[in-house]
Computed example of a mutant assay.
Amino acid sequence: MTATAASSLLRPIEHPDPAVTVIVPTVPDNDHEAVVACLARQCADAYDVLVVNDPELGVCEARNLGLEHADADIVAFTDDDCRPPAGWVEAIERAFDEHADLVVLEGPVEGGMTYEGRRKYPTCNLAVDRETALAAGGFDERFEYWREDTEFGWRLEEHGTAVYDERVRMVHPERPRSSIVQANEALLKQRYPEKYEDVIVPDTLPERVNDWLWRKGVWDAVDAVRYGSGVSGRG
């Protein structure tokens, strides 16, 4: 690891023998103090927090760096604009205790982004078995900033049990900063045609119309007028 990479690894919460390592990828322009404050109020005892703070790294690179240097067998991911409830880490530990072969865990998200468990594996609320994740190669950097989480989760499904747990809740107060990258979307569909059809393609006609409008950028344009931003939380 280079000196630059080493300096980008911040450990605001430490533990000598953590059961869970929480990784927060961020950039210096974004304030991570609020999410760390929420993590400091967790009910769990044996956990630590690793913030990857480097403007030269993309989110996939940052998460992979954190995954490589995490101390715990369970690694949880969230983002610098999220606010983990006090029982978040404890719920993650409980889920892994209940499922011996669990390799990837997701849960609901509420706030500026909403998620109810559709095998898309948003990294604002994701936990994995570290050894399995490393063996699988970590996040694929070709999916940088779009569908890297879904591709990662689908790949881990092939190595063990995947669980959606209502108790593992995350609050995402702000609207997501990401928006659709068509090349990444096409690559995901090409690589996983059956999973893409099952998970991504809507079932009903209204859902398909809404999805088409989203892919064509209509909802981004509407949101830009409403919120002064081209970023959309849909999809």
Rank of each mutant, 00 (worst) to 15 (best):
M1E: 12
A3D: 11
L10F: 07
R11T: 13
P12D: 13
I13R: 06
P18M: 09
A19F: 08
V20Y: 04
I23H: 05
P25Q: 06
N30D: 13
V36Y: 05
A37H: 10
C38P: 05
C38N: 14
L39R: 03
A40Q: 13
Q42D: 07
Q42N: 06
D45Q: 12
Y47L: 01
V49M: 05
V49W: 03
V51Y: 07
V52K: 05
D54N: 15
P55A: 15
L57G: 05
L57K: 04
N64F: 00
G66A: 03
D71I: 00
A72P: 11
V75D: 01
F77A: 09
T78K: 04
D79S: 13
C82R: 08
P84G: 11
P84W: 06
P85Y: 07
A86Y: 06
W88P: 08
V89C: 03
E90M: 10
I92V: 15
E93A: 06
A95F: 04
F96S: 14
D97Q: 14
A100P: 11
V104T: 08
G112E: 10
G112L: 09
Y115S: 00
Y115M: 00
G117M: 04
G117Y: 02
Y121H: 01
T123D: 08
T123H: 12
V128G: 00
V128H: 00
A136P: 10
G138E: 02
R142V: 04
Y145A: 15
R147P: 03
D149F: 05
L156K: 04
E157A: 12
G160N: 01
A162N: 03
R167F: 01
V168L: 01
V168H: 01
R169S: 11
M170P: 03
E174K: 11
S178G: 05
S179M: 09
Q182R: 15
A183C: 12
A183R: 13
E185G: 00
L188R: 07
R191K: 14
R191V: 12
Y196N: 11
E197G: 11
I200D: 09
D203P: 08
D203L: 15
D203K: 14
P206L: 02
E207Y: 10
R208F: 01
V209L: 14
V209P: 02
N210A: 15
D211H: 13
R215L: 14
K216W: 12
G217H: 00
V218C: 07
W219T: 15
W219P: 03
D220P: 01
A221K: 10
S229E: 13
R234L: 11
R234D: 03
G235Y: 00
